[in-house]
Design a protein around this nucleic acid. Structure first.
Lengths: 219, 219
DNA sequence: CAATCCAATATTTGATCAAATTATTTTTCA
DNA sequence: TGAAAAATAATTTGATCAAATATTGGATTG
């Protein structure tokens, strides 16, 4: 019989490597165009090739990395065309995910989200770009997590992996001062159990972010 | 300097393995719940572990395979909940993809699609389920291919990888006799350069398929 | 029924080979 | 002779394999 405490204390190396790389991409530590070499990671992380290869394969399948013809991989460069697709997909998936999440959330869950929003605003006020990136991600995905979705959530994660580096560039250019979001509207709708309203707030939040990136013309 | 003929004659082993497995899942040769072991593939395909691991990682990231807690992998079992998500995502992505594809298609491209539709109908008439699965996939994805989409198309492929096994089960239960589609409507809209109409036809086609699977209650 | 052992399987490593990039040298032509 | 192009060598990187290690699930046994 399985124990209730089902926490696997030991994580496979490929999983560890995957998470480390993923974080770097998601929060913009790796810039678009930057090469990611297997051997480089082998040396940097003191592990063997196979788990590194697996981590890279996973990230590549998720769109976070891209195979260049010559069997090299790099962080993809997003042009206007792909940005448009990314925006369409995010607007199609994430509001629905938020709506489905709202359906399942308890007052405690909402408080968790409020705490994250507080941290987020602190990061904005202090100009901490990495903190902003992280808390913003955390806000969206602790929300989405409550949808208990095995299909839509991975899709959203894949889209954020591609959006992250772009967003990081824009934040780096303009700082965090004039960043705004519709998280308060989302939280307010959550408290009112207005599920559709949560979806609408998230849609607005995404649209706002997309507009900022589009205006910055970083391609 | 590089030659104009840049055709890589040799494909990496992990790519070959990936494609073979992918086909089997896509066209229902592997049924939901079926286990996929690394060693099994090593013996079956007479290759080494590393490329097999990579192929499995890629398919897992695409949702075509699923990690069971105990580091085993199997073809995922789709329940009602996930089916609903799958349907929502397909309806959100694929009509848009079709619309964008229509924008770029020449009369020759449309003829290619008509030829595929002829083959598809032959497969239906002869009760060839595998042929039906393959030609139906081919119809949708040669269409989608013209959208030249690096974001939406991979999403659609990922969704089909999960939809395939389900669709195969239903076809196996009821045969190909009463299968219908809206491909003629799509082709007709294509000939009229009615891009939105192409999207609508594909939406209808997908909805029809979803309804059939839902009615069959295969969970 | 629980603890322990065993077989099957997954994970990781280090080594080897092949391909691609970069650096260097040689050749060619004005 | 000098500069650009071509060829070649050296280095880096990727792909594959086979062996060693670790984990899991089930059988065995007390």
């Amino acid at each position: 019989m399985k124990d209730i405490l089902d926490t696997p204390v030991k994580m496979p190396a490929h999983e560890t490597i995957y998470r480390a790389l993923r974080e770097k991409i998601l929060f913009g530590e790796l810039v678009p165009g930057q090469a990611v070499t297997i051997q480089g990671l082998v040396n940097e992380l003191a592990v063997s090739m196979t788990p590194v290869r697996e981590a890279i394969r996973t990230l590549t399948a998720e769109g976070a990395l891209e195979l260049q013809g010559n069997r090299r991989v790099c962080v993809p460069i997003i042009g206007e065309r792909r940005f448009s697709e990314l925006g369409f997909a995010r607007l199609s998936i994430e509001p629905e995910l938020a709506k489905r999440a709202a359906l399942n959330m308890t007052p405690d869950d909402i408080e968790d989200l409020m705490r994250i929003d507080v941290e987020l605003n602190k990061a904005i006020d202090s100009g901490d770009i990495h903190g902003y990136m992280k808390q913003n991600w955390l806000f969206h995905f602790t929300l989405y997590g409550h949808a208990d979705s095995k299909v839509l959530q991975p899709l959203a994660e894949s889209l954020w992996l591609r959006y992250g580096p772009l967003s990081r560039i824009v934040s780096g250019q303009y700082g965090t001062r004039n960043l705004v979001d519709l998280h308060d509207e989302a939280l307010s709708a959550l408290r009112d159990s207005d599920n559709a309203g949560v979806g609408d707030a998230i849609r607005g939040d995404i649209q706002q972010g997309l507009d900022i990136v589009r205006e910055s013309q970083c391609w």
